[in-house]
Amino acid sequence: MSAELALSIDGRDIRVAPGTTLREACQLVGTEIPTLCFNPNFTAANACRLCVVELEGARTLVPACSRAVESGMRIQTASDRVRHSRRLVLELLGSSVDLSLAPDLGELLREYGGRPERFSEAGSATVEQPVKVDNELYVRDYSRCVLCYRCVQACGVEAQNTFAIWVSGRGFEARISTEYDAPLPDSACVYCGNCIEVCPTGALMFKSEFDLRAAGTWDEGRQSTTTTICSYCGVGCSLDLVVQDNQIVRVNSPEGNDITLGNLCIKGRFGHQFVSEPKRRERSS
């Protein structure tokens, strides 16, 4: 193990192990850096630029999520320049994407004093488009997509390796898409739900949740989460069962689990429906 590296963060000196990222170093001094595209299980995508911090001597701001600490760095995490970039990133997203199911971003917008509406008039470009409901398990509402790449990473090399979706097009027209924008059932999708698990804005949603929301009965206040083990194969994946009104309404993969690494398969994610099968109730009563 090589020697620790010294750096200063907002004037506080700290030493960290080589390989530590600026985000992690900031955490060590108690400074949370806001992130959007970052997912601890994945290689940093570096796409959203919300996590930028100021590095003394650097021409541009640097992304804290991926930039490794170098000896002698002097970092500002809340300078005017940093706050300006974060505010603008949030405003640019807010002006082009429906963030109504991304409460964290809404919170950040307030915190940074962002006013996305100042970029919007009738003709301003947005990513608005019809919701895609083409199967019984997933709903894709790309009007909410901030193009954080997390779903592509989850479907691809970082986890599932199915590659049913990728980024297509380019620039503002870039979209998450199957080949030729084919419906999901015509794609390679295996419905592991790992993309939904990592989506930060509700662009990808379980159909069960979508339907409950549409019916106005989705109520996180009435939900409880219990961790148990999947009832199918012998791998032993931990499942977080989200239960509302004694019904499993969503299955998550608990964080920091050495077996699942945050992933599940279609059976673990959706195969629970037999539990609430009405037939069980009828027959046994």
Partner: peptide, 13 residues
Amino acid sequence: NSERRVQRVRKAV
């Protein structure tokens, strides 16, 4: 499970 890990199952519903 298959790596000999004894794991807890819990009542959720």
